[in-house]
Amino acid sequence: MDAVLEVEGLEKVYGDVKAVRGLSFAVAPGEVLGLVGPNGAGKTSTLRCLAGILPPSSGRIVVAGHDLRQQTVEAKRALAFLPDEPRFFEYLTVWEHLNFTARLYGVEDWEARGRALLEEMELTGKEKSLPGELSRGMKQKLSIACGFLHSPKLILLDEPLTGLDPIGIRRMKASLRRRAEEGAALVLSSHLLPLVEELCHRLLVIAGGRAVALGTLPEIRARLSGPEAEGASLEDLFIRITSAAAEPGTPSP
């Protein structure tokens, strides 16, 4: 099956700082890829490049068959980016945000979809609220509702559970799983390793802007030699991999 997201040699440079160095990976429909790494590893830069927010310094990104650089609009139509700090237009209500999104993406049955999404996100009754009147968690849910409205083929999530309460977290995990089952590809960046372990089919561990591990959890475990690797938790693996990556001369996967 063709990948929904293909990344080849992605690099992002800020002045003298190389934030992302030659990332290459692909995500298939229905697959959830976990993007993990220590602070400053380049996760957010990578996601912003994938979402078309930052122009990559070099490399190629293809979303649903469309080159993000050449066919920007078509590629963006197929994706949704849900940042850790949701951004809204403070003068539009919850319902008007859905209306705005519907026009941008041409979602004709947006009202029915919007109602269902608000119900799913427990935002029913908040249709006329302005973003400034919503709690942190509610804003996160509104961001997700807007992102899901056009049924994107690729969903990019940066710390998606920030601000959600335990019930919200459970619902959100179920919601993400359902989108994956329906065929969407998800790239999820989070520091919450148990969440990543629970939801993701494969992991991409990056450190210093480089991919230091890519594969399923058992594959990554198998790559690490030594008796302590067997049965190690993701947290243990994460610490071992990223510590090793910090040492000079570590090869890429």
């Binding site: 403070e90 302005l130 400034g132």
Partner: peptide, 22 residues
């Protein structure tokens, strides 16, 4: 973050026209 904290000053007037999805 680009979100002006002016919630209290907004008056929820009707939009200038109905925005259809098409």
């Amino acid at each position: 973050s680009g979100q002006r904290a002016r919630t209290g000053t907004f008056t929820l007037r009707k939009p200038p026209f109905r925005l259809t999805a098409r």
